[in-house]
Design a protein around this nucleic acid. Structure first.
Lengths: 126, 126
DNA sequence: ATATGTGTATTATTTTACTAATACACTAGG
DNA sequence: CCTAGTGTATTAGTAAAATAATACACATAT
C-alpha cells in the first residue's frame, strides 16, 4: 500500500505522511476508511512502531485523520470527497520540479524525458 | 548553479553531491574545471561552510573531484568525457520513479502527467 | 612579505530521526 | 471475564545532520 524507503534521505515518517495525503486526496482512502495498524506497517516495512505512530499523530494534528480510542485510525469525516484534478496536479508539482532539475543538470531534453516517463508509466500499468 | 533546499528532508550535503555528479555526468563540469568555493556556496545558500566541505570531501573520496592544497577543488582529470545518453537516463530514473509513485497515489494518468511535465519543461526553456 | 583566497581540522552544541523495551487505556469478540 | 487488537505514553539511547567559532597549511598575486 505504501512505499517506505529508508535510504533516500527523506525521513520515513515524512514519506508516509506525504503518501497518505496523496491517497486521501485521490479518494483511494475515503472518509471513515481505516488505515493499516501501526504494528502491521512497522512489521512489513521493518520500522519502529513509534515512527509510524509519529506520522499518524501528525496527520491527526493536521485534521486529515481521526483517532478513536482502541480502534484503528480512520480518515477524517469532514473532508471534501475528492480533490479536483487541478488540485491533485498541484500536489504533483514538487516531483515534477525535481525531475526537471535533474534533467537540466544531466542535459537531457524534454523529448528524452517525456519518452522515459511514458515508458516507465506504461510499464507500471501493465 | 546549484539548487539547495533545506526543507525537503534530504540532507543538504546529499543534494549537493547528487547535483555535482549530474553536472559532471553531462560535462557541464569538465575535468579540470574549478568548483565554486566552499565559502561562496555557503554564503549564497545560507548554509554552514562545513556542510559544503563535507560534500566536497565525500566526492573526492569517490574519485569525482580532486583536491590541491590552497587551490579550488576541481573535477578529476581521469574521467570519461561525457556519459552516454543511456547512462544519463539511468541517473534520471530515481526522479522518474518518484514522480510515477506520486502520480499513482494521486490517481493521475500518464496523459495528465506527461502534459504537466511537458508544460513545466517548456516554461523552463523559455 | 603581505593580503587574500583555497580547503580543512578541531571542538562543542543543538536539533532531528530512529530505535528499543515496557506499560497503559481502550475496544471488540468469544 | 478474557484475550487480542487498537494507538500511545514513557524513558532511554544512538546516530546523523547542521551550526558555530577558531585556527591551520597552502597557493597566488601584489
Amino acid at each position: 500500500m505504501f512505499n517506505l524507503n529508508p535510504n533516500t534521505g527523506v525521513p520515513i515518517y515524512r514519506q508516509l505522511m506525504e503518501q497518505v495525503r496523496r491517497m486521501v486526496s485521490s479518494s483511494q482512502l475515503k472518509p471513515g476508511d481505516a488505515l493499516p495498524s501501526v504494528r502491521e506497517l512497522a512489521m512489513t516495512h521493518a520500522v519502529n512502531p513509534m515512527t509510524i505512530s509519529k506520522a499518524y499523530s501528525m496527520l491527526e494534528a493536521e485534521g486529515l485523520l481521526e483517532r478513536q480510542r482502541g480502534k484503528a485510525m480512520t480518515v477524517a469525516g469532514n473532508l471534501p470527497l475528492q480533490e479536483s484534478k487541478p488540485d491533485r496536479l498541484e500536489r504533483l508539482q514538487p516531483a515534477i520540479e525535481n525531475l526537471a532539475m535533474a534533467a537540466r543538470q544531466l542535459e537531457l531534453g524534454s523529448d528524452d524525458v517525456l519518452k522515459a516517463v511514458r515508458e516507465h508509466m506504461e510499464k507500471q500499468d501493465a
